[in-house]
């Protein structure tokens, strides 16, 4: 049985910052496991061969002129998806921790539940034998976010930092116009909730990072925690009006004090 509807166009966005060592495997993995998907690598100002490698393996590549951070890179992917009329977009990290074979699961779930705008792969659901090998400090942080976020959005969220996500057109359009900056995944869940879009998590396997350096080094974990907590609490009190055409939507910071 065909797992992907032929009448929909699918885009897999692979944000990559200095991931020359692993991005080829990710691209090949998607091409092998999910051949209907177009692959778009967003080279986030890498200083290594990420761009050349991605081109060589036949991916489309957006090359950001300087490093924007994961939020800006993924948002470029959303904009690409919107402007090229894709129906479904997935985010697959360039470091190889997401298994392209699981894309099928995400897609099937969205197909079975058409009311969902985002389907998120979670490491922590289910009694999987394949425990995700994350350091305890990071797991603690993730669970704190998960607890707070579940409270805020009144829906159980087990893995709010997972970047393995599938979006439909509505979510693509929302995030193309406004996506959080530095560590976007947690805040993005809150944004969806504010805009009354729906999401659900399904269990997936994730691998240990293939190579490169995580955007969250252990030294930065604390900064990460504080920043996301600030964003969450401020986000609670932020009205996020849906930008109208003609608004200066993508530039979130207004003029003056």
């Amino acid at each position: 049985m065909s797992t992907v509807r032929a009448d929909l166009s699918h885009l897999a966005v692979v944000p990559a910052y200095n991931e020359a060592a692993t991005v080829a495997d990710v691209i090949r993995g998607i091409q092998r496991e999910a051949p209907e998907w177009d692959v778009l690598v967003v080279d986030d100002g890498s200083t290594d061969d990420t761009f050349a490698v991605a081109e060589m393996y036949g991916a489309r590549v957006l090359r950001l002129p300087f490093n924007l951070g994961i939020g800006g890179a993924v948002q470029a992917g959303f904009t690409y998806a919107r402007e090229n009329g894709y129906d479904v977009m997935a985010q697959v990290d360039g470091d190889g921790q997401h298994d392209p074979a699981e894309l099928r699961k995400l897609t099937e779930h969205m197909r079975a539940h058409p009311e969902l705008d985002m389907v998120c792969g979670s490491r922590f659901i289910s009694s999987n034998s394949h425990r995700y090998p994350a350091p305890i400090s990071r797991r603690t942080g993730i669970h704190i976010f998960a607890f707070l976020l579940s409270l805020f959005v009144r829906q159980p969220i087990s893995d709010p930092t997972s970047g393995f996500r599938l979006y439909n057109r509505r979510a693509i359009r929302l995030f193309a116009s406004d996506y959080p900056h530095d560590y976007p995944e947690v805040e993005a869940v809150l944004m969806l909730h504010h805009h009354r879009l729906r999401m659900e998590e399904i269990p997936v396997r994730m691998f240990q990072r293939g190579g490169g350096v995580s955007s969250i080094s252990s030294g930065k974990s604390f900064y990460y925690m504080v920043k996301v907590l600030l964003a969450l609490f401020v986000g609670l009190f932020r009205r996020r009006p849906i930008p109208e055409p003609g608004d200066h939507a993508p530039v979130a910071a207004g003029q003056g004090l």
Partner: peptide
């Protein structure tokens, strides 16, 4: 924020 948007536009145009 503005330079972020510019960087994204540049990348999209280049592609």
């Amino acid at each position: 924020d503005q330079s972020k948007v510019l960087a994204q536009r540049v990348a999209l145009l280049e592609e």
